[in-house]
Design a binder for these strands. Structure first.
Lengths: 151, 151
DNA sequence: TAAGATTGAGGTATCAATCTTT
DNA sequence: AAAGATTGATACCTCAATCTTA
C-alpha cells in the first residue's frame, strides 16, 4: 500500500514535531532552573486537582496523562514519597486504588504554575491570536477523539 | 510576575500536548509492529539523506533532530553498529566528526517510510485540509525561528 | 478468564565531567 | 579558554511477566 501524502500536510507534520520538541525543551529547562515540579509531575497533580474529590483511579490517571500503567505506577511512587499524593485502596473494587492529591501537592502545583504559565506565554501564547488559539484547539481535538485532556 | 494567560490559548496548549503524545504513541506502535526503524532512528537518517553529501557534523545533526550532544553520540553509536551510517573524522577540524549515511541506511529509511507515511496519514493528515496544513505550518514555525527541520 | 496494579529487564534521554583539538 | 565529542552517573519510560481480586 503506497500512500500519497500531500506535501503541505507532511510539512505541517514535521513542523508540528519540531515545534513540540523545542517548546517542551525550553519549558522543562525553565521549570528546572526555577526548581519547581517537572512537567510530568505537574501533569499528574493537575489531573488530580481537576478530578472529583481530587482523586483518580490509577488507570484513569494513566490515561489522562498518556502514560503506560507501569510508568504511572513509578511516577506515583515518587509523588507519594514527596508527599504530594497518597494511595487510597478502593473499597468497592479491591484490585484498584485511587491516587489522592494532598494539600502539599496542591501547594506545589500552585507554586509551579506561574513559572509554567510564563513559559507557555513566552514560547507559545504570545505568538498566536485568540482566534488562532480556538482553531488550533479544534484541529488538535480532531486527532484525539476519545482522549482526556492533559496539562 | 503574575501571568494572565488567555483561556483559549491555554486550551490550545493543552490540546497541543495531548495530541502530540497520542499521535507519537500511535505511530511508534505502528513502526514497532511492522519491525521497521523507530522514530528517533528515522529522524537521524532522514536528516542525513537531506544533507549535502549525505553527511552532517555531529553537532549539527544533534541540533537538527533536537537531541543533546551526548544523546546523539549514543544514538549514532547504535546506528553505526547497525551499519546505517559511519563516522568520518573531519580533515579540516580534527575535533569534529561527520556522520555519513550508508546505502544500507538509505534502504532502511525507504523501507520504513511507507509505514510511517501511513501512520501520518491515518492519524493526522486525513483530518486536515490542505489550507489548514499550510496554516499549521506557518503557526508552528513562529515558535521555532532558528530551529532546523526534523522528521 | 480477565482487569487493576506492580515489578523486572532493558532501552533511551539528560547533565556534568572529561578528553582532544583549536 | 573554548568548542566538538564522548563517557559516567542517573532518571524515566516501555513491554512482558506476575500477583491479587472480580
Amino acid at each position: 500500500m503506497q500512500i500519497e501524502l500531500d506535501k503541505n500536510k507532511l510539512a505541517a507534520w514535521r513542523s508540528f514535531i519540531t515545534a513540540h520538541a523545542e517548546l517542551i525543551g525550553r519549558i522543562e529547562t525553565r521549570l528546572d532552573k526555577a526548581k519547581v515540579l517537572p512537567l510530568g509531575w505537574y501533569d499528574v497533580l493537575l489531573a488530580l486537582v481537576e478530578a472529583p474529590e481530587r482523586r483518580l483511579r490509577m488507570s484513569d490517571l494513566a490515561q489522562a496523562v498518556i502514560l503506560s500503567r507501569s510508568g504511572l505506577t513509578r511516577l506515583v511512587d515518587k509523588l507519594e514519597t514527596a508527599g504530594y499524593l497518597f494511595r487510597q485502596p478502593s473499597p468497592t473494587d479491591r484490585r484498584g486504588a485511587f491516587a489522592v492529591l494532598t494539600d502539599k501537592g496542591l501547594a506545589a502545583l500552585r507554586e509551579a504554575w506561574p513559572i509554567y504559565a510564563e513559559g507557555i506565554d513566552e514560547n507559545f501564547a504570545r505568538f498566536i491570536s485568540e482566534e488562532e488559539a480556538g482553531l488550533l484547539t479544534e484541529i488538535f481535538n480532531r486527532f484525539t477523539p476519545a482522549t482526556k485532556s492533559v496539562v
